[in-house]
Design a protein around this nucleic acid. Sequence first.
DNA 1: ATGAAAGCGCTAACAC
DNA 2: GTGTTAGCGCTTTCAT
Lengths: 336, 336
Amino acid sequence: MANYKDIAKIANVSIATVSHVINNTRFVTPETRKMVLDAMEKLKYRPNLYARGLAIGRTNTVGLVISDIRNPFYPELVQGTEEIAQKNNYNVFLCNTDYDIKKGLNTIGALISRKIDGIILASSQVDDSIVREVLDSNVNFVMVDWGSRNIRVDSIAFDYMVGIEESLDYLITLGHRLIYFISGPKERKTSQIRINNFIESLKKYNNKNLKYKIIEGDHKLEGGCKAAKKILKEKDIPTAVMCSNDLTAIGAMQVFIENGLRIPKDISIIGLDNIKLSEILKPNLTTIELDRYKIGKTLMEFLLNRINNNDLPVQKVIFKTKLIKRESVSSNKNIN
Amino acid sequence: MANYKDIAKIANVSIATVSHVINNTRFVTPETRKMVLDAMEKLKYRPNLYARGLAIGRTNTVGLVISDIRNPFYPELVQGTEEIAQKNNYNVFLCNTDYDIKKGLNTIGALISRKIDGIILASSQVDDSIVREVLDSNVNFVMVDWGSRNIRVDSIAFDYMVGIEESLDYLITLGHRLIYFISGPKERKTSQIRINNFIESLKKYNNKNLKYKIIEGDHKLEGGCKAAKKILKEKDIPTAVMCSNDLTAIGAMQVFIENGLRIPKDISIIGLDNIKLSEILKPNLTTIELDRYKIGKTLMEFLLNRINNNDLPVQKVIFKTKLIKRESVSSNKNIN
DNA sequence: ATGAAAGCGCTAACAC
DNA sequence: GTGTTAGCGCTTTCAT
């Protein structure tokens, strides 16, 4: 592959001139410039970003760490980050952790070694070791705050509470008294929070003689199916089921339908995420919305701000959630 | 950030020794080695892959170019490539082209400038300009051959024909005579091929008095919905609909259900992809399977082979497709 | 068993 | 307006 020296030779100039033509960093007479450009063209020159990065200490690349690209939560978030990145002439290095802290550590290490300009930590498997790793490296970073760990780091967080309260309110108004919650994998922070928010919200209705139960899912279709099968075996089948994400809700819904339950007549269902599918499926899914695309954009904006100005005060945004009412919920027929 | 010089100073050795300890490239006495390791630990040393890449000319990074991460075709493919990459100590740089040739060219350029060791071109928006760009750069590469462009490049291709023929055979045996096909966006190679394969397959049944029609979709849920609405307005509603991918089929199915058609009783549906959702949805989707995970693995294996041995003969694999029979198809009630 | 130094491709300060 | 050159962090040949 051609380099400055090759270009310089053909164009009969010094490598400094080549550099300045390429980067527009000082005046070069149109004639000289043309010689250089022609030589580049002829050699099909491609800049070597490693060399440049080494020389100037910046790479215009940022790392985006997520848990699992197959989880429909992420693609839109990724899209959001990329859009902003592209506008600002940055490239995004996407990395999966597969929900594995150790793999996450490796990933972070690989990114740091690549001297990327910043890291977006959107993976939900983040423990102190990972955060420390990133902080130690002094690389710019922003993160999704899945718990409320309250570190002084640029971050975005979710307020599930609003949406969950709204949902419960809705269900209770409709007469539901036995409400199940299908959670994500219990070891994941993101599941725990949603469970806690659910339980917390229930406390407001102490006087209503409410009953609930948590069934563990896996945030995937399969887990929703399995959980639904478990629910069908209970002696008291709930009249409403809330789910930790939409995939879970959709999986559960299919199993209920398969077993002759009518939705929402026999059983109401609420999801969380508002993935595209949930509004198209019949019956379409009542769900708590999370704007993943906007979240992605915000994360990247935060990171670029930070890269451009390191003494910015800590940036934080909390994304509110809200209930989207669709067909999968109706009043509890038993009280009508 | 610490570098060899810092380590060398603390450990009281030369930078050459530091390098050899880190890379295990020559013998170093255990005592010296320990000094170096301690110094590294103390400084929280992180290798600079740019500098290393510049020095040795390899980066252990490959680029994976896809069309759109939100298209469920890709996540599993990505997963497959990453698994193989990781096993071989490679990292993957994932890039979207957003179905845009120009963006694709930029992406390729960015990858080449990053001196990645190879490129997997799995985006379906590939024209000659892109292929030439990659070939000119001399970077190792493998591609998904969406058309049959017959270039001498490592590639994998799909034989949709088998699966489509099998599907048509199945439908026709079941008595269907008016069969619609909801395609992807017509300007995309990948859509065109499936359409052609569908039409081609139909020719075998010239004597059967078959009728068909192609409706354009977009390979997304929305397009499936829209196409189904169009179909419902036709004067002769088909008894069977084949779709260019599963999302399309699922979207269409929901619209049919919404409009009171029973599936498969009133209308049979066949998809293509076999995404997870299709086996869980009620009624679950009969579809043509494509093993995206395996495709991803194969692509990365091809690329690594090529990187390790450039005079390998051209590698090619054709992935067969096959029909997965589920609930969304039954016999044409009109002939029973 | 270890060190000195050239060189990978690029940038930018300094010189003319 | 253009050229020379040191240096970014690392690898590796050649010495010792």
